[in-house]
Design a protein around this nucleic acid. Structure first.
Length: 151
DNA sequence: AACGTACACTTAT
DNA sequence: ATAAGTGTACGTT
């Protein structure tokens, strides 16, 4: 399957994604956009819809790196939820620090929802900018409240 | 190929 | 507040 590249807006940022068919090859945040489309579900997600991105395939998972196992676990964290580095580490039988490393090198953020992994007492890191993580979590917090009566 | 250092953390002094 | 433990990657010998 041919791999194409495109971008869409997320707040002040652009999300650039390289993808082919149902497989996401790379996702990254940038301050500038590029021409080209991204999958419709990703556009909707960026627009604030509570979309489940887990149907996509990602190169992060079957690429047989040591982090692959951690990514599979992180993928299970649903929209609007969070888990701590330590919790993921306990499931993966590794150390929290290692989970941090894995998140930092995640080739496909959003598809592997590394933004939902937070520190035990704080938000934890995010590159290129922690504000993105804050915005994503805030957006999901609102989105996942859709079933409750609005206040 | 070995060695040192750097981390998106946590837990225990 | 500081230190030790943790697993992988990456740059230097």
């Amino acid at each position: 399957m041919e791999v194409v590249e495109g971008s869409c807006r997320f707040g002040l940022w652009f999300v650039r994604v390289a993808w082919g068919g149902n497989t996401i090859h790379r996702v990254r945040f940038a301050t500038t956009g590029i021409d080209g489309d991204v999958p419709a579900l990703i556009r909707q997600y960026c627009a604030g819809r509570p979309v489940d991105l887990s149907p996509f395939e990602t190169v992060a998972i079957h690429d047989s790196t040591a982090y692959s196992r951690i990514y599979e676990i992180v993928r299970e964290v649903p929209y609007g939820a969070t888990a701590t580095y330590g919790e993921i580490a306990a499931i993966a039988r590794t150390s929290p620090r290692v989970v941090g490393q894995a998140m930092a090198r995640n080739p496909t953020p959003l598809i592997i929802p590394c933004h939902r992994i937070v520190a035990a007492n704080g938000i934890g890191g995010f590159s290129p900018d922690r504000e993105i993580k804050v915005a994503l979590l805030e957006m999901e917090r609102k989105g996942s409240r859709k079933k409750l009566v609005s206040l």
